[in-house]
Computed example of a mutant assay.
Amino acid sequence: MITANDLICGKKIQLIVIKIMSLGYMSIRATVIAVLVALLGLLLFGVYYHDAYTDKAKDLEAAERQQKQAETIAGNVIQSMRIFNAITQANHDEKQQI
C-alpha cells in the first residue's frame, strides 16, 4: 500500500530533478543521468511495494483457505451431531415401544 508520505518522497525527487535541470548548470548528459537515476529509484520503489502487495495477497489467500476449512469442519461436526441425535432419539423411541 502506498502512503501519502511515499508519494511526497516521489514528488520531492521529481522536484529536485526539475530544479537541477532549470539551473542550467548541468550538461545534457548529466541531466539524462540524473533523470535515469530518478527513474531507477522510482522503479525500485515500485518493485518493493509490488513485492509487499504480493506477500499480503498470499497471506490473504491462506487466511481465506483456512477459514473455508474451518467452516467445512464445523459443518461436518454439526451434521454428525444431528445424525447422532437422530439415532439416539430413534433408540429412545424404540425402547419406549417395548
Score class of each variant (00 low, 15 high):
Val35Ile: 15
Asp59Gln: 11
Gln66Ser: 09
Thr88Val: 10
Gln96Pro: 00
Ile8Arg: 03
Arg29Glu: 15
Met21Leu: 10
Lys68Met: 15
Thr72Arg: 09
Arg82Phe: 08
Tyr53Trp: 11
Arg82Pro: 02
Val37Tyr: 03
Lys95Phe: 04
Ile73Gln: 14
Leu15Gly: 02
Arg65Ile: 03
Leu40Arg: 03
Ile83Cys: 02
Met21Asp: 12
Ala38Phe: 00
Leu40Cys: 08
Gln14Arg: 13
Ile16Ser: 04
Ile28Tyr: 07
Leu44Met: 06
Asp93Lys: 05
Lys12Arg: 14
Thr31Ile: 06
Ala62Val: 09
Gln14His: 06
Glu64Gln: 10
Lys68Trp: 05
Ile33Arg: 11
Arg65His: 07
Arg29Gly: 00
Ala4Val: 09
Glu94Ser: 12
Val77Gln: 05
Asp6Ala: 08
Gln69Cys: 03
Gln96Thr: 11
Leu23Tyr: 15
Leu39Ser: 13
Asp93His: 01
Ile78Lys: 08
Arg65Met: 07
Lys58Phe: 07
Tyr25Cys: 12
Ala34Arg: 02
Ile20Leu: 15
Ser80Pro: 00
Val17Trp: 01
Ala62Tyr: 06
Lys11Leu: 14
Ser80Gln: 11
Ile13Val: 14
Gly41Pro: 02
Met26Phe: 12
Lys11Asn: 10
Leu42Ser: 06
Leu39Val: 13
Ser27His: 02
His50Gln: 07
Lys58Ala: 13
Tyr25Thr: 14
Ile18Val: 09
Lys12Glu: 14
Tyr25Lys: 12
Gly10Pro: 00
Ile13Cys: 04
Ala30Trp: 00
His92Phe: 12
Lys68Phe: 11
Met21Asn: 13
Val35Gln: 13
Ile73Thr: 13
Ile98His: 04
Gln67Ile: 09
Val47Cys: 10
Phe84Ser: 14
Lys56Tyr: 05
Tyr25Ala: 14
Ala62Cys: 03
Leu7Val: 01
Gln14Cys: 08
